[in-house]
């Protein structure tokens, strides 16, 4: 078992970033993982709210063992893509398969981190209890979480550097700490595929580093991560693959291949019309 703990958050991730650059630049040997069916296979996916298309004809096969970012402007359907994959929104056409089967049959293999702002953090519960919720899926109806579930939850809290906050009421946690609790809950699901909706939104620098390290660790264990991401500047540093989305899928592949001016222009449209440079300038224009 890997013992890479994220408790030593003082480490500046420059080295990590460096190693990741190398990783994405050189063709990696990770392909050995890709023997089974793909972790996420989306075909002809169309989702509409009130008959207005939010996603149109999206085809996407996520590479296993990779960190994939979903990037695009506001209203591009990024969160909807994840929610559709999880069966949280009705689908107008097309299908999604998770490791070769419909999601409903593969729930145990999937972990989900909703947007942090989607819950009421004044809810009467503590960090450990929230992480324990990650075990509810395997517990079944009526059964209460016991010692074993709490033990797993505690381990996951430790893994995100939050062991000392286990009994802290969740409203007393900072934004970054709350995000870590959500991460720990996803880890407690002990899944092979992780869907994350804006994991880096509104977190502090320390937490951002911790999340990056955690993503690395998940990848080193052969897990697949699909995350909605907002900051074009860091896509290159944090992720292997990127899916550019604006209702339709504009491009998908390794970050270096996909982040071309033409692709970004196609994704963000006129909103980056003035720029001539690469993604670094782009983010200034599309930051919301």
């Amino acid at each position: 078992m890997s013992t890479v703990q994220t408790s030593d958050l003082g480490v500046i991730p420059a080295t990590l970033v460096e190693s990741q650059r190398r990783r994405s630049a050189a063709p990696t040997g990770d392909e050995t993982v890709a023997t089974g069916p793909p972790p996420v296979e989306i075909r002809d996916l169309t989702v509409a709210y009130h008959e207005r298309p939010v996603l149109w004809d999206v085809d996407l096969t996520v590479r296993p063992g990779k960190l994939t970012a979903i990037v695009g402007p506001n209203g591009a359907g990024k969160s909807t893509l994840i929610k559709a994959a999880l069966g949280l929104v009705p689908v107008a056409a097309g299908w999604v398969k998770i490791f070769g089967e419909p999601f409903a049959e593969q729930r145990r293999l999937v972990a989900y981190i909703p947007q942090r702002g989607s819950v009421d953090w004044d809810f009467p519960t503590d960090a450990l209890d929230v992480v324990t919720m990650g075990r509810y899926g395997t517990l079944g109806w009526f059964r209460r979480p016991g010692k074993r579930e709490r033990q797993i939850a505690m381990d996951k809290l430790r893994q995100v550097g939050m062991a000392d906050f286990a009994r802290r009421q969740i409203s007393e946690l900072s934004g970054g700490q709350q995000q870590r609790v959500f991460l720990a809950r996803a880890l407690a699901q002990e899944a092979d595929l992780y869907f994350m909706d804006e994991p880096f939104a509104g977190v502090d620098a320390t937490t951002e580093r911790a999340i990056v390290e955690l993503l690395q660790e998940l990848r080193s264990q052969g897990k697949t991560v699909v995350a909605v991401h907002h900051d074009l500047n860091t896509v290159d540093d944090y992720f292997d693959d990127v899916a550019l989305l604006n209702v339709r899928l504009v491009a998908y592949g390794p970050v270096d291949d996909v982040f071309t001016h033409a692709n970004l222009h196609a994704t963000y449209g006129g909103r980056i019309g003035f720029l001539s440079g690469g993604p670094a300038e782009t983010s200034a224009a599309v930051a919301d």
Partner: peptide, 13 residues
């Protein structure tokens, strides 16, 4: 779980 995080609840079935 329904009261705290309905989306997550739906995601685990």
């Amino acid at each position: 779980l329904l009261s705290f995080d309905p989306d997550f609840a739906a995601s685990i079935g």
